[in-house]
């Protein structure tokens, strides 16, 4: 079941909005496909990015994958727990395994992202 409390990208990231902050992570599908995640590289707090920018990378036992930001904005927090325990992305991709928090500059960008039904359809 895909949670309908957030939006999704075709590259398998999610963004959950709380006020002016978007919390970003990768989906259960993406985490499962990557397999055991061993390193996560995240951007500096304060850095500003546009939607679709690569802001970090995720390395698993199978591949290094870029992390794309679903929405434009300033990074206000990165998940400190992932430094010591990147496996949180596998065990809890939608909660404890979140990656960055971003201050949204254009909430209208959310409209172009997939809702839960659209993402479920993408997964087939």
């Amino acid at each position: 079941m895909i949670p309908n409390d957030r939006k999704y990208t075709q590259e398998h990231e999610w963004v959950q909005v709380e006020g002016e902050i978007g919390i970003v992570g990768i989906t259960d599908h993406a985490a499962s496909e990557l397999g055991d995640i061993v390193y996560v590289d995240l951007p500096e707090v304060g850095a500003e990015f546009s939607a679709g920018d690569s802001v970090g990378s995720i390395e698993s036992v199978k591949a290094v994958a870029d992390l794309y930001l679903p929405v434009s904005g300033e990074i206000v927090e990165v998940n400190p727990a992932l430094d010591g325990d990147p496996g949180l992305v596998n065990s809890s991709p939608l909660d404890d395994g979140w990656m960055v928090k971003v201050r949204l500059v254009d909430p209208a960008e959310l409209d172009s992202l997939l809702d839960a039904a659209g993402y479920e359809e993408l997964l087939g």
Binding site: G35, D36, V38, V61, K62, G87
Partner: peptide, 19 residues
């Protein structure tokens, strides 16, 4: 396949990952 602990070793050919 191998597990996360194996992946943290330094030498690639020491272990065989999935695939």
């Amino acid at each position: 396949g191998e597990d996360r602990r194996e992946q943290r070793q330094a030498v690639c050919f020491k272990s065989a990952g999935q695939h």
